[in-house]
């Protein structure tokens, strides 16, 4: 559990850094999507997002190179499940304006009613989905 707490504190610090540094919410689904958009009048609007996403990949990569982190075992779910899940996660986070980071870590911290509601909703449907696939269909 100590890893979970240290990791969570680091995630919180990352969000605080983005907030105090450039005044932005560390919502990964939004940053990811915006980073894929055509370059606008102000190129930094794309570049900061692209660099945040790059950092998100480089962080674990550095840990791997230093041998401080073991890659978790791959999921045993099939490719069909993976692709449908990816599509739903993308669709849902865009439609619902956020994911676990934007609504969960940042939105709840802002005491946003929308984010509290969204977080409770996606956690509830996640729990229902896992319960159905693990305990009722198998």
């Amino acid at each position: 559990m100590i890893e979970a707490i240290i990791g969570g504190l680091l995630i919180g610090c990352a969000a605080a850094c983005l907030l105090w540094g450039i005044g932005r919410v560390a919502g990964i689904s939004g940053i990811f999507w915006q980073s894929l958009q055509p370059v606008s009048k102000d190129p930094t609007e794309q570049s900061w997002r692209a660099l945040f996403i790059l950092g998100l990949v480089l962080g674990p990569l550095v840990l791997l190179l230093l041998e401080w982190h073991d890659p978790p075992p791959p999921s045993d779910a099939g490719w069909g499940t993976l692709m449908v899940a990816g599509l739903l996660v993308g669709f849902g986070t865009r439609l619902g304006s956020g994911c676990t980071s934007g609504h969960g870590i940042c939105g709840i911290a802002r005491f946003s009613g929308r984010s509290v509601f969204a977080t409770l909703t996606f956690m509830a449907t996640g729990i229902v989905t896992v319960s159905l696939t693990r305990h009722f269909f198998l």
Binding site: I11, A14, L54, G55, L58, G59
Partner: peptide, 9 residues
Amino acid sequence: SGLLFGVGL
């Protein structure tokens, strides 16, 4: 921020 977030995850 991205690096910290990735390491944290």
